[in-house]
Simulated scan of single mutants.
Amino acid sequence: MTQSPAKYDVIAIGNAIVDVIARADDAFLATHALTKGGMQLVDAEMAELLYSEMGAAVEISGGSAANTLAGLAAFGKSCAFIGQVRDDQLGQVFAHDIRALGIDFDTPVRTAEPPTARCLIMVTPDAQRTMNTFLGASQFLPAQALDKDMIQAAQILYLEGYLWDPEEPRAAMRTAIAYAKEAGRKVAFTLSADFVIARHRADFLAMIEEGLIDILFSNDDEIRALTELDDFEAAVAAIAPKVPVLVCTCGENGAIAIVDGVRSETPAAVVERIVDTTGAGDLFAAGFLTGYVDGLSVEDSLKLGAIAAAEVISHYGARPEEDLKLLRVKKLG
């Protein structure tokens, strides 16, 4: 079929979350039995308790896929977001923040409980972030909320693995994949976390085998979890032939991409001081996808990912603060 011109570079489906970020010491984590550097799901009661005992905080719209779109928009890409919020104060905060970035967001709000999702992030002096997520309304995204025309008007549909957990948005994302494939568009998927893979490994592997994923984002731990192989290179070798584009980040060791069987690598970008690692993977995906839709080489796309990740870990929060378009020119030319 002949593709119609794309209105959007990327449309993403993900958790619509407001991030609440505050400094904390190891004693605070121990007092509340929080696993340092981890991410756990909490109920409304625990979310309220942690929020009441956190120090002074920065509150900003978040969520993994939404963070990636924020990076893409900062690079000048045209984006849209699909995610569920409640008609409450945090829902309004989320909608205002994401639209202020120039990202289209028109998902109808939910009028029933639970409230809008929030992620309580404690950042320790060593820049490790401990995330406590109350998923709230984001878990109730129905397929009926999808705009088929909007999905089919994007070059790439980007899906957040975290949202695969609840049944309703999982069904919505399957519908979105069908819409994108019908229009001949690309589907990108981020594995998100080991605990998500543990619950949905069979689903993810089936989608890969069926050719539904064109671009797969992972980190070194996640690719091992997906394949149940301890050796990173063996894990990469098991998945790479099954997806057109595989991107794996490896923390301070940089990142690799295997595109149609050809491997490219980049070192991690130099960071003067690491402040907060929240959103590093999300912004790496933003940089790589920017290069991808702009037709850059795989090597330069990886470098752009590393540049974006380095920027976001140099300050608190998962959204870029510097002008990414200027950084791109400065560091890539």
Rank of each mutant, 00 (worst) to 15 (best):
R201D: 07
L304G: 12
C119D: 09
T227E: 10
Y51V: 00
R224A: 10
G14W: 02
L332R: 14
L296E: 11
A238H: 03
F140L: 13
G184K: 09
G161L: 05
R328T: 05
F94V: 01
R174D: 07
Q3L: 13
D147P: 03
G136D: 06
A193Y: 08
V42M: 02
V329Y: 07
E299P: 01
I21W: 01
E265I: 07
V42E: 00
E210D: 15
I103W: 05
S301E: 07
D19E: 08
A257W: 12
G37R: 11
A127K: 07
H32C: 06
A310H: 10
Q92F: 03
R199C: 01
M46Q: 11
A255K: 12
L332D: 14
D26Q: 13
A268T: 13
V187Y: 04
E113I: 07
V196R: 01
F75I: 07
D147S: 13
F189Y: 14
A180R: 08
D294A: 14
G136F: 04
G38Y: 03
E252Y: 03
L246C: 09
A188W: 01
D282S: 00
T278V: 12
G295A: 04
A280T: 06
A234C: 00
A27Q: 14
L41W: 00
E321Y: 06
H96K: 13
R86P: 02
A143C: 04
D221M: 10
F204V: 15
V259S: 08
L296P: 00
